[in-house]
Amino acid sequence: MEDTGSTAKAKTTAEDGNQQISDKLLKSTKPLHRFVRNEPRSLGIVVLIFGCAEILMGFQLHMASERTRTSLQIYIPFWQGVLFVVCGNLSIYTGLHPSKKMMTVSLSMYVVSVLGILVSCIFRIHCLSYFRFIRYWSHHEEWATMRMNLLYGIEGMLLTSSLCALVLLIFLIVVARMALKSTNENVQVIVLQGLPPGIPTAAN
């Protein structure tokens, strides 16, 4: 009786071990799980922080009522901040609930955000060159020089954060595109089949 119980217990343990190995193997081969392993939630939190910073600095520029040419002229801090916030939230949600549909939506927003960053970077570089020109010709006026230095620092900081977000979004685009491409291809499935207890094997 004791031998039968120990044998059954050993078989149950072996079956549980095989099931765990099978689950881990299937999860590691699923493209969605490979996307989750690249930590889209952590990157999404960083992009979300960049978006909040853009919106807050946009309010600061708006409250300053600057008549000088800034990125607020075409409302870059607001619409780019909203894009970053949406991309960050989508990355966090997709990391928690991975699915092909959510990954497709996230990929679309990543691409739109990258295009927006390119537009904002071109305009901000133009603004920085304009600030440098104004600062050069108003160097004898202390207040004008201080104001140009402040705007130069704000726009430079926002440009730097946009470039950092651009790198993160490009990485997310590559990872999401590879995962979606893998789901459309034939994925090899490994099936582990075990004989039920009581059926003699060939060795027996």
Rank of each mutant, 00 (worst) to 15 (best):
Asp3Pro: 07
Thr4Cys: 07
Thr12Gln: 05
Ala14Gly: 12
Gln20His: 09
Gln20Lys: 15
Lys24Trp: 13
Leu26Lys: 15
Ser28Gly: 07
Leu32His: 02
His33Pro: 00
Phe35Gly: 06
Arg37Val: 05
Asn38Trp: 06
Asn38Met: 09
Asn38Pro: 12
Asn38Tyr: 06
Gly44Ser: 13
Ile45Asn: 06
Ile45Tyr: 02
Val46Trp: 02
Leu48Gly: 14
Leu48Arg: 13
Phe50Tyr: 10
Ala53Glu: 05
Met57Trp: 01
His62Asn: 11
His62Gly: 07
Ala64Arg: 07
Arg67Ala: 04
Thr70Pro: 08
Ser71Cys: 08
Gln73Asn: 15
Phe78Trp: 05
Trp79Ala: 05
Gln80Lys: 03
Gln80Met: 08
Val82Glu: 06
Leu83Asn: 03
Gly88Cys: 07
Leu90Gln: 15
Ile92Val: 15
Thr94Ile: 06
Gly95Asp: 04
Ser99Met: 04
Thr104Val: 06
Ser106Trp: 01
Tyr110Thr: 03
Tyr110Asp: 04
Val111Ala: 10
Ser113Asn: 07
Val114Asn: 03
Leu118Ile: 12
Val119Gly: 10
Val119Ala: 13
Val119Thr: 12
Ile125Gly: 15
Leu128His: 04
Ser129Phe: 08
Arg132Lys: 08
Arg132Gln: 08
Phe133His: 11
Tyr136Ser: 08
Trp143Glu: 09
Met148Leu: 03
Leu151Asp: 02
Leu151Lys: 01
Tyr152Cys: 05
Glu155Trp: 00
Leu159Lys: 02
Thr160His: 07
Ser161Gly: 11
Leu163Asn: 09
Cys164Leu: 12
Ala165Asp: 01
Ala165Arg: 01
Leu166Thr: 02
Ile170Asp: 05
Ile170Gln: 11
Phe171Tyr: 09
Arg177Asn: 09
Ser182Glu: 13
Thr183Asp: 03
Asn184Ala: 11
Glu185Ala: 14
Leu192His: 10
Gln193Ile: 09
Gly194Arg: 12
Ala203Leu: 14
Asn204Arg: 14
